[in-house]
């Protein structure tokens, strides 16, 4: 009857979940990991022979360039997203119509992700809304090429992941005690100072989450650069897809995936650690006062 000891209950309850995660999450990752160390087959699959060819191919300067570009796009997009998300979530948290506004933020999720990206072609395209509007008001005479470059990719990434940044930020800002802003103003802070010195430090966990929720999907993104990107905005995700479907070099696409996963994990851990140690450091300095 040992199995019914209190401490074993948890394991029993979570068994189905463990099973699910193992089969559908861990095993595919293991397959990718294993494939990345195998030889590629000329017919498109893998040969069961150990090989480091796939990793050797990563030393290619062309590939390093793509990684750097991907980093650039994801970082810029994350910064813009969070900068937009903070005031938006602040506004929602202080609004009388919180529920309705939050609902509006969630509405885009009801439409397919790809359709929403295609919709941006209608907005930014040569015959699109923005161009027509600018021509109509006489600001430009000929249409301007807005699509198929890295800025289009950044704009659409910002658009696509903004709700993921707003939701965690909203939940921390909503818990923030706004009377602290009044206190700061009372003590001599300008509106801007009271936000920077009192609100931002207190909603830091929300900002961290928002950055991660934007950066991670942006870094591994494939569909957005594929649809609205151009030659200057090929991202790592596009290379993986290309290797998998066109070149049919499975080990290479697997090795890129592994590198991408490792890089993201390291990046996230560093970011979280940095944020933590920074607040700890501030705490330490202040304890020495």
């Amino acid at each position: 009857m040992k199995i019914f000891k209190k401490k074993n209950y948890g394991q029993i309850y979570t068994a189905p979940l463990m099973f699910w995660i193992t089969v559908f999450f861990v095993i595919p990752i293991l397959i990718i990991f294993v494939f990345s160390f195998l030889k590629k087959s000329y017919t498109g699959g893998v040969l069961p022979q150990f090989s480091l060819d796939a990793y050797g191919a990563l030393a290619n300067p062309q590939f390093v360039k793509v990684v750097l570009k991907t980093l650039f796009i994801s970082i810029v997009a994350s910064i813009f997203t969070v900068l937009l998300a903070i005031p938006t979530s602040y506004y929602i948290a202080r609004s009388k119509y919180k529920d309705i506004l939050l609902f509006l933020i969630i509405i885009p999720f009801w439409t397919n992700f790809l359709i929403r990206i295609y919709a941006w072609i209608a907005i930014l395209g040569n015959n699109g809304f923005v161009n027509n509007f600018l021509i109509n008001i006489g600001l430009i005479e000929e249409h301007v090429q807005l699509l198929y470059n890295q800025w289009a990719v950044i704009i659409v990434i910002v658009y696509a992941y903004l709700p993921f940044a707003i939701l965690p930020l909203y939940s921390t800002i909503e818990k923030f005690d706004f009377s602290l802003l009044e206190a700061a103003r009372d003590l001599g802070a300008t509106k801007f100072q009271s936000i920077m010195k009192v609100m931002i430090p207190n909603i830091k966990p929300g900002i961290t989450t928002a950055v991660l929720f934007t950066f991670i999907p942006a870094f591994g993104n494939y569909a957005i650069p594929e649809i609205v990107g151009g030659k200057d905005s090929v991202m790592v995700g596009n290379i993986i897809a290309n290797q998998l479907r066109v070149v049919r070099n499975w080990p290479l696409s697997a090795s890129i995936s592994v590198v991408l996963t490792v890089l993201t994990t390291i990046g996230v851990l560093l970011f979280v650690q940095l944020n933590k140690s920074k607040t700890d450091e501030i705490r330490k300095i202040k304890e020495d006062v």
């Binding site: 005690d177 009377s179 103003r185 001599g188 802070a189 207190n202 202040k286 006062v289």
Partner: peptide, 27 residues
């Protein structure tokens, strides 16, 4: 309010949770 020579003690204290007692007063 930040330019008035008037300061307030709030009912709920309104202390800044991310700052120490010293830093709150030094704010």
């Amino acid at each position: 309010s930040n330019k008035r020579h008037v300061n307030t003690v709030f009912q709920n204290y309104a202390l800044f949770p991310h700052l120490t007692v010293f830093e709150n007063v030094a704010f």
